[in-house]
Design a protein around this nucleic acid. Structure first.
Lengths: 106, 106
DNA sequence: TCAATAAGTCAGAAAAATATGACCACCAAC
DNA sequence: GTTGGTGGTCATATTTTTCTGACTTATTGA
């Protein structure tokens, strides 16, 4: 599911939007990586086994559109792009931590 | 994504499992419905516009396997089956409420 | 000027998720 | 003993997601 909006169900279930934001093969992984350090395209490609350009590109764009990552052009040494967690992204961290606790309880 | 386990990524990201549990077209909707009342197969089929037997059947089974719903055979009047939220399912409610708040904040 | 790194895009193929329509088994009422 | 409700399964088709491989633009270093 790569975030194709469905206005009907979106409005019925508010958490639906968030779940969609994180649906897809790579997005949870990307979010989690972004918690520890800013992301870079080519590094991700090497670090995530089985990942491909196209899918990463789309996933990054959608996380950006969802206001969870922000794209930053670093004008230094080897001029590159970094994806950082936004405030909204940071605010999600404690919520995911609660989910992890629930998982461990059983 | 119909919950095909990927032991590698599951272990890297614990929230991944939960996200998978709720991935798919109908699962968020089913969970949300189950919060207000037990679910019944044929009622869902009528109530959810566009839903089909096959997909509902699979979604219900997977939510059951994930320990979020439990199947109960009601041996009364018109002998039927009800899907109820388990304890684990109930514990997820406040977490989803937090997600809704985050959505509304921006 | 040539090659390398960085960050992509694009068209088409493959794989996975979802939908369709036919069918099945059980029970109860008529 | 046939009809109707309940809760499904199965094989197949369609749709959506994901992957592959070729190509692109910009910057940098030799």
């Amino acid at each position: 599911m790569t975030t194709n909006s469905n206005s009907a169900t979106d409005e019925i279930c508010p958490a639906h939007a968030l779940l969609k934001t994180f649906s897809g093969k790579w997005k949870p992984e990307l979010f989690r990586s972004a918690v520890s350090a800013p992301l870079r395209f080519n590094s991700l490609l090497k670090q995530l086994p089985g990942a491909n350009k196209q899918s990463l590109s789309v996933a990054l764009k959608e996380l950006e559109e969802a206001g969870i990552l922000s794209k930053l052009t670093v004008k230094l040494k080897p001029l590159h792009i970094e994806y950082h967690l936004t405030d909204k992204g940071q605010q999600l961290i404690p919520i995911f931590e609660q989910l992890e606790l629930l998982q461990h309880k059983r």
